[in-house]
Design a protein around this nucleic acid. Sequence first.
DNA 1: GAAAATTAGGTGTATATACTCACAAATAAC
DNA 2: GTTATTTGTGAGTATATACACCTAATTTTC
Lengths: 152, 152
Amino acid sequence: MTKNSPMSSARRRSDCVCINLRRMSRVVSQIYDDALAPSGLKITQFCLLRAIERLGSTSVGALADDQELDRTTLTRNLALLERDGLIEQSAGVDKRMSVAQLTRAGSAAIARALPHWEGVQKELRRTLGAETLAQLSDIHARISGVAKASAG
Amino acid sequence: MTKNSPMSSARRRSDCVCINLRRMSRVVSQIYDDALAPSGLKITQFCLLRAIERLGSTSVGALADDQELDRTTLTRNLALLERDGLIEQSAGVDKRMSVAQLTRAGSAAIARALPHWEGVQKELRRTLGAETLAQLSDIHARISGVAKASAG
DNA sequence: GAAAATTAGGTGTATATACTCACAAATAAC
DNA sequence: GTTATTTGTGAGTATATACACCTAATTTTC
């Protein structure tokens, strides 16, 4: 009992992995949203548009898989982008599928937001270090692996 | 140009720090929510209740600071807990303040959920490793520091 | 001590997120 | 070829999240 207090009450934040991740997510999202504000896009929308750009014409399901995002959530998010004229959705060859693709305005919005996004990325790389960001990527990959394993 | 492709297209997920964090947050939240489902609490509610338990009677503002959560978001989240009888809110000495405290049902809910939560924590520690979780905590602390610096 | 400034919270509105259920199209069974 | 099953989406509902604005209570100024 003499080896007590291993830095115990020092950073007595939370020991819940989930809530720590949610907090980080909130804090960082605001940094990005603030930076992207002049472009009129939120970081979620920017990344969704970029995913559509990268994948070309894609179905809701494929996009949901790509983004590790619930399909029905994606439906709502896509509806907002379509409302704002940034994407178009149409039925695919398989009439059940809804295929999304960028509009000219969507491409323009990406281009407008890109430098702001790059600024934050660079700033984070500077303040946190490239190694830390690589760690985060690695952890992300492993967490996704765990989730897929337990879901399958 | 001969030094091309530094593991480029291999894990071509996303290079956006923010979206990676959001994804991790989503994926991990579902793991916790699934595990906590029998208790009737979501992980957000569980951690919020635990924070109130830890802080005792606290004002909305103090709790928001503690949780790094927007004050108005907290108002809504607390309203749900109050609706379900897990907390009570009353005016403080300073009549502007709304002070929240656990009810008996709230304490019971924490107790009911705790073993499920501990199970997930242990499982994550096993699959990801204690070192990884420590890295996440460290990154979290540094990110919060960055955010506070840029906000102040 | 009354006017001004600050502070603590709540409301309206909006996006992000996911679950359950419903529906329509495509595919498989027979 | 008609029925049963599977599959791809959307809608209803609910929580989580934050911003802009509003109100009420406190504190500060004079």
